[in-house]
């Protein structure tokens, strides 16, 4: 497998007045194409910072982030926007669907930002929501909304799916369904999936587990035989 994401000596500092907070301290890791990666850590460890840097929502203080051979850390605002549009599929804890658009419209919205022909209905079918295509987010349950958001993220065929606590707002049963769907995306479609969570159980289902603490990498472990999400002991 080939490396598509690489963090090299990444530092991230936040200044608030005189005080400097080191949110990312010399972080190094690589992720291969198609990997199902789980980033674990307690709250405040720097998980979200890592995700924001990788997703192009924030820029590094020093170090390099190389995605598909491009140096993301050197991108300007416009390039970052372009990068997010082409490479990153975000999945948020609170779904962040556009409330004014129906499920299918939320998915087909991606046509406006990438040059990919999207068949909204078949994408929705792939997350099992083909029959809810014309409903508005407010008419869908949380799990269904999250599935629409996954459909929206995968529709543009991004390099990676970045999931920030994707099951945080869902009950555990629905959460498993969502995680299963994400694992399928990785296994069957060879999509790189990166999930940030504080739920350690998920580690056993991951191809790679990156644990962070106080802004530093604590450990990186590769699972030779990851379990199916559905087989985990929730």
């Amino acid at each position: 497998m080939s490396t598509i994401i690489e963090f090299k000596n990444v530092d991230k500092e936040y200044k608030s007045g005189e005080h400097i907070l080191k949110a990312m301290d010399n972080v190094n890791f690589t992720i291969d194409k198609g990997e199902f990666v789980v980033i674990l850590g307690p709250s405040g460890a720097g998980k979200s910072t890592l995700l924001n840097l990788l997703g192009g929502l924030d820029s590094v203080t020093s170090g390099q982030i190389i995605v598909n051979g491009n140096h993301v850390e050197s991108f300007n605002d416009n390039q970052l926007t372009e990068y997010r549009a082409k490479n990153v599929g975000f999945i948020f804890q609170f779904y962040n669907l556009i409330p004014n658009l129906t499920a299918i419209e939320n998915v087909e919205l991606m046509k406006d930002i990438v040059d990919v022909d999207i068949d909204g209905l078949s994408v929705l079918d792939s997350v099992g929501l083909g029959n809810h295509a014309d409903q508005f987010p407010a008419q869908l349950s949380g799990g269904e909304q999250q599935r629409v958001s996954i459909a929206r993220a995968v529709a543009k065929q991004p390099t990676m799916l970045l999931c920030d606590e994707p099951t945080g707002a869902l009950d555990s049963k629905t959460g498993v369904l969502i995680l299963n769907l994400l694992q399928d995306m990785s296994n069957n479609r060879n999509t790189t999936v990166i999930i940030v969570t504080h739920n350690a159980i998920l580690a056993e289902a991951a191809d790679k587990v990156i644990r962070i603490k106080n802004g530093q990498i604590e450990s990186i472990a590769v699972n030779e035989n990851p379990m199916k999400v559905t087989d985990l002991d929730w």
Partner: peptide, 14 residues
């Protein structure tokens, strides 16, 4: 919503 769209990759102009 605007923030979401921005994250999704919509340009400021759009």
């Amino acid at each position: 919503e605007i923030a979401t769209l921005k994250v999704l990759g919509f340009k400021t102009g759009a």
